[in-house]
């Protein structure tokens, strides 16, 4: 009886791991393949029989994309746009999230919902009116304009996420800070923000990754080298008659490196429970 129960549990465990491993392969597989491809010679990529593990390893693709294309420029633009987006979101979104979290004002719920509505429309639908507006104010093909466009759909997400973190910071702490002579803003900056620091970092990284990887808006709103970001640039490298697989793969790997690094940071910060001891624990 016990024996059979144990066996059943083992079978269930094996099945679970099988599913998990399968899903992991599904997610990570393409990235590993891309990494392997980026390390191959062009001749080893397109072959009669599939070669998963490269027989000869080369870094030529990395050298090629970094020196023989506008890739560094693309990365530079992406960094600028991402930085601008995060800066705008943090500067305005933090205040907005705090207000939503702490104040009861007329139209609060409607405004919060309105923020979500923006995200319900497909980006494709927004892109044409947005393009017209951007052209009208002369922000097409500018990194700042692209950052503004990103802000329009990332800020609501940022505010919603951060509001949750602010909500969990005890209100009595702010009351105490105000009695200790802080203003509302002072209490927010010196007491609530340090407590919601992990949330702030997590939300910012989330925004940064979204801005970093964005393709559609970037495709429509940038026309020249001056403001084009890496996802568009990489896509444009796909020629009509030739496909430089190795170089593209190397570009892809280089582009996801910052994302991987950022995720590593978020993970560490999010685990720390900073609020421990704030109230009776």
């Amino acid at each position: 009886m016990i024996e059979s129960k144990r066996r059943r549990r083992t079978v269930a465990n094996i099945a679970t791991y099988f599913v998990l491993a399968g899903l992991s392969m599904f997610c990570i597989g393409p990235m590993i393949w891309m990494l392997l491809t980026s390390l191959k010679y062009e001749a080893d990529i397109v072959t009669q029989t599939m070669q998963y593990i490269p027989r000869r390893v080369t870094f030529d693709n990395y050298v090629a994309i970094w020196t023989q294309s506008g890739f560094p420029r693309l990365i530079g633009n992406s960094i600028t746009v991402t930085f601008l987006t995060v800066t705008i979101c943090v500067a305005t979104g933090t205040l907005a999230a705090y207000a939503f979290s702490r104040f009861a004002f007329r139209g609060r719920t409607q405004l919060m919902l309105g923020y979500l509505v923006v995200r319900m429309f497909p980006a494709v639908m927004m892109i044409i009116p947005l393009y017209v507006v951007m052209r009208g104010v002369g922000l097409v093909d500018s990194r700042f304009g692209l950052a503004l466009a990103y802000t329009s759909f990332l800020l609501p997400l940022f505010v919603w996420m951060l509001k949750g973190f602010f909500d969990s910071a005890p209100r009595e702490l702010e009351s105490a800070a105000r009695i200790d002579g802080s203003t509302r803003l002072g209490a927010m900056v010196r007491i609530v923000m340090p407590l919601a620091r992990n949330g702030l970092v997590a939300s910012s990284v989330f925004i940064a990754i979204a801005a970093w990887n964005e393709f559609l808006f970037a495709l429509m709103l940038t026309t020249g080298q001056g403001s084009r970001t890496w996802p568009v640039g990489l896509q444009l490298m796909v020629g009509e008659f030739q496909l430089p697989w190795g170089v593209l793969a190397a570009g892809g790997i280089l582009s996801i490196l910052p994302v991987v690094v950022l995720f590593a940071i978020v993970q560490r910060t999010m685990v720390q429970g900073l609020t421990a001891g704030a109230i009776k624990g």
Binding site: E172, L173, A276, A278, I279
Partner: peptide, 8 residues
């Protein structure tokens, strides 16, 4: 305060 409200 009831919860002490110490800055953690």
């Amino acid at each position: 305060f009831q919860s002490y409200a110490l800055y953690p």
